[in-house]
């Protein structure tokens, strides 16, 4: 983290659905290589926050600058940002009609304009990294949830993004599969990737996060390093939230 210009800069960002403020003047900056874990009660705007970063959700006011590009109406800018920002979804969202390998190469071939052979080499490389090289020719439905989510991570990585967004990547998994996905994410953290993770896996957060962001009612209630956040959260709401999810 020698480079001190933020790779993500959100300033006073609001997102309004009808009369519901999903995001209420949120400001957040993320440095290259920084790992941010976003947590908070459901409906607090965590997902909306990270979905604004690759404009799956558009913001109504404020500015978002990602990798030097301001997100606005320009579709070309938006696509440029999306190529630099990978996203992993709660429901995996693999393409069911394509094999694992085809899922991974679709982006590189069609968006990056790589040759098929180069894309396949890249894809096999990333399948290795998520520890499922042997599943390349299967269809997503033939894999377990944990394997599917690892394929989804590999699919995002194949675009060689500078930033990875995770939207509750383990929430849809059976308990015994959560760790295989978290392990891959920890390994990814080791490579210096900029990561923003919405998750309730506090063990993971403690291990990899540089920064904890606690959200409530569309606002960022607290930003703190994990040690401080877990031992002594400054806001009462964060303390209550931690008590609830760490109870058992």
């Amino acid at each position: 983290m020698t480079d001190l210009t933020p790779i993500i800069q959100m300033t006073d960002v609001s997102r309004i659905f009808g009369d519901f403020r999903a995001l209420d003047r949120v400001s957040l900056s993320v440095l290259p290589g920084e790992r941010v874990v976003v947590c908070g009660p459901s409906g607090s705007g965590k997902s909306t926050l990270i979905r604004c970063l690759n404009r799956l959700e558009s913001h109504d006011s404020g500015t978002i600058i990602v990798d030097g590009i301001e997100l606005g109406e320009d579709t070309r800018d938006i696509r440029a940002v999306r190529q630099e920002v990978g996203m992993v979804f709660q429901q995996f969202n693999l393409f069911p009609h394509l094999t694992v390998l085809e899922n991974l190469t679709l982006g590189p071939i069609r968006v990056r304009r790589m040759s098929r052979s180069a894309a396949e080499e890249l894809a096999r490389n990333y399948l290795d990294r998520v520890h499922i090289p042997e599943q390349a020719d299967k269809f997503p439905a033939q894999l377990s949830g944990g394997q599917q989510q690892r394929v989804a991570i590999a699919r995002s990585l194949c675009m060689e993004p500078r930033i990875m967004l995770f939207d509750e990547p383990t929430s849809a998994l059976d308990p015994e599969m959560i760790n295989e996905v978290l392990d891959v994410m920890v390994e990814l953290a080791g490579t210096g990737m900029t990561m923003i993770c919405v998750t309730h896996e506090m063990g993971f957060a403690r291990k990899v996060a540089h920064k904890m962001v606690f959200m409530e009612a569309g606002r960022i209630a607290e930003i703190a390093p994990p040690e401080a956040f877990f031992s002594n959260p400054s806001s009462a709401r964060a303390r209550l939230f931690l008590d609830q999810i760490l109870e058992h």
């Binding site: 696509r79 999306r82 979804f89 969202n93 968006v111 699919r155």
Partner: peptide, 9 residues
């Protein structure tokens, strides 16, 4: 969303 997020048109 998945296809959008990898930058496809």
């Amino acid at each position: 969303e998945a296809a959008t997020s990898i930058g496809m048109t």
